[in-house]
């Protein structure tokens, strides 16, 4: 899923400082699962903003709503009757949400309440880690399901660098050296020779290097 972190209250407060009537719009997709922009988080942000503005004696009216997904126009359309009732809308979805909203409602102003960080999963309750870089050409079958593109700080494809020490990456003691994990797994399975394979240079045009990407499934298009 897409993982995000909420922006600081200070930053969100500065975004809405000129408004007295806003909507906070959550999303029931990824940001609900990573506990940053679902039903509860929307209410918490609304309450915190109201408290801050009451303290400044500059009260703000905040309505809240949460739609199924902000990355699908059919759900974005569900707010068409109410979106015009506000001076601005704060979206708690990933970076996709405010953009779909902005494209659908040109006359309204949309602000992001979260920083979208990575594609990943929960490794423990309350802790998420990056697992995929969305490079567009998956090669993890060569590395026993572990991705060096996303999980090596340098995205090295031919083995660890000199910064690997005791299974950790030099960037942080918290960060696993994924190459240490790949080599360990290959050794456990007696398949270390797999790593001798000479591979063609990776084609990064399918990643962001090729510009904004598009996915088309002909059988679904109208």
């Amino acid at each position: 899923m897409i993982v995000a972190d909420r922006k600081s209250l200070e930053e969100i407060l500065s975004m809405v400082k000129d408004y007295k009537n806003i909507l906070i719009l959550g999303c029931k997709g990824c940001v609900t699962v990573c506990n940053v922009g679902g039903v509860k988080e929307v209410e918490i942000l609304a309450s915190a903003l109201r408290i801050a503005r009451q303290k400044e004696e500059n009260e703000i009216n905040i309505d809240t709503n949460v739609i199924e997904r902000q990355c699908d126009n059919e759900y974005v359309a569900q707010i068409k009757d109410s979106v015009g009732n506000y001076e601005a809308v704060v979206s708690m979805a990933c970076g996709v949400g405010p953009q779909f909203l902005s494209e659908a409602y040109r006359e309204q102003k949309f602000y992001p309440a979260v920083n979208t960080t990575f594609f990943g999963g929960a490794v423990a309750h309350g802790i998420w880690e990056e697992r995929c870089a969305g490079c567009g050409t998956c090669i993890i079958h060569d590395f026993d399901g572990l991705c060096p593109v996303a999980r090596c700080a340098k995205s090295l494809l031919h083995g660890p660098c000199g910064g690997s020490s005791k299974g950790k990456c030099e960037i942080s003691k918290e960060t696993t050296c994924i190459w240490d994990s790949i080599v360990s797994k290959k050794m456990e399975q007696g398949r270390l020779n797999d790593l001798l394979k000479v591979r063609a240079v990776k084609d990064w045009r399918t990643a962001r290097d090729g510009g904004p990407r598009r996915s088309i499934r002909e059988e679904l298009t109208k």
Binding site: S8, L9, E10, I44, A48, I51, A52, K55
Partner: peptide, 8 residues
């Protein structure tokens, strides 16, 4: 932490 951030 929220209150601290707001200045309460």
């Amino acid at each position: 932490r929220v209150l601290q951030e707001i200045g309460i």
